[in-house]
Amino acid sequence: MIDLDDNETSAFLHSGCALLVGTIGADGLPRACRAWGLSVVDAGSAVIRVLVEDDDPVTLKNLRDDGRVAVTATSVRTHRSIQFKGRVVSTERPTAEDEARREHYTKLFLTDINDSHRYSPEMLARWARQHVVACVVELAASFDQTPGPSAGSVIDKDNR
C-alpha cells in the first residue's frame, strides 16, 4: 500500500485529480461513477473519505450493501493515475466540512481542466455536482494506473 503520509502523494490526492469510483452489485454488475473530493482521514490505517456523487442509487446501494470499492485518482494535467482498492467503512451525510471540501475540490478540478483543455468556465460549471455522499473507505491496496506498460502494477511504500 502506498504511503499516504508521503507529502507528494498527499498533495496529489488532495489536488484537483479526476476521481472515479467503481463498485459491485449483488447481481455481479460493476458500476462506475464519479466523486467530487477526497481526503486522507488516517494515513497510518489507510482510511480515506471520498465524496461520491449521490445521484446514482445503484452505486449508493452497492457502497452500502457490498462495500468493495475501487477509487481512481487521475491528474488532469499529467494523466498520472493511482487506483485504490478497499472496503467501505461507512456512508454518511456530508458535513459542512465535506461541503467545503467538495467546493474546494470542484474549483481545483475545473481549473485544471480549464487550464489544460480550454473549456469555458460556463461549460465546466455544467459538469459540477452539488450533492454528494461521504464515503469512508479503508484501503487495502494501491496500483499505478498511469497509462503505459506498467499500468496496473502494485504500488507500495518502497515503490511510489
Binding site: 479526476a18 472515479l20 469510483v21 467503481g22 463498485t23 459491485i24 455481479g28 460493476p30 458500476r31 462506475a32 457490498d66 468493495r68 470499492v69 475501487a70 477509487v71 481512481t72 487521475t74 493515475s81 487506483q83 482498492k85 494506473q145 497509462p147 499500468a151
Partner: peptide, 11 residues
C-alpha cells in the same frame, strides 16, 4: 469486476 467481485475502475 473480477470473478470474486473486486471492482476495478480506470480511464
Amino acid at each position: 469486476a473480477n470473478g470474486e467481485g473486486v471492482p476495478n475502475v480506470t480511464y
